[in-house]
Design a protein around this nucleic acid. Structure first.
Lengths: 114, 114
DNA sequence: ATGACTACCTCGTAGTACTAGGTAAAGAGG
DNA sequence: CCTCTTTACCTAGTACTACGAGGTAGTCAT
């Protein structure tokens, strides 16, 4: 089941913060990890991810550090900041409230037993 | 908890179709009903709802009919079409897949027992 | 007749996912 | 050596849509 692109809006940052909060990561790995953990559901495009990472860094929710591998290659690892942790908690609560509200509206179950 | 405006994107049409599918409605009532059923969570703005209704009608997912009240007032009632019912089913499946995927990513629970 | 509510509408702006392009290096296979 | 795939970073432009802010008009109670 392919999801509409608009559905993802507003959840991208939540998802990214969530993964980085679990373990510092670099962009390319984030894409792979997102796909793996969602059972293949999410396939973030680079044109979605990198701008989002730059936004989050500009807002000081994450901090990037260039790190050099033994073979000389460089990767930009992102770490969750304290501010980012608070934003993550907020976004989690937001998601829970939102998804509960959607379910209330779309499920006719709430017509019974009031 | 106030939700981010972007979170709503992609769910608006699903929510509208869902309510109209339960009972034909006019715009103003949709706003009130949405608020009531979501426990006050959703407060659709007119600038959101009316353009969405027009989109849905243009796409033939709903059909509008002007109906005159005894006092002479007119309302535009919207009815779910067959095409709309199919779209609603799709959007419901989409939402279920999407929310399941989000929960998989944000809950570290999936690290245990695999 | 003044205000509150119902009920419809639209224009412009802002935010963001994606397409389509780009760079550069590592490693594998021939 | 050369090509291809993969890793790994980046950006400009487009399309879509929620919302703010504005408008019209009728009903009803005070």
């Amino acid at each position: 089941m392919r999801y509409g692109r608009e559905l993802l809006k507003g959840s991208t940052e939540h998802l990214i913060l969530s993964l980085i909060g679990q373990e510092p990561m670099y962009g390319y790995r984030l894409i792979k990890e997102m796909e793996k953990r969602s059972g293949g559901y999410f396939r973030f495009k680079q044109g979605t991810l990198y701008p989002a990472l730059h936004r989050l860094e500009k807002d000081k929710l994450i901090q990037g550090k260039w790190e050099r591998l033994p073979n000389g290659q460089e990767r930009r690892y992102y770490y969750l900041t304290e501010l980012g942790q608070r934003a993550l908690d907020e976004k989690r609560a937001e998601w829970e409230g939102f998804s509960a509200a959607v379910n209330l509206v779309i499920e006719p179950a709430n017509l019974a037993e009031v």
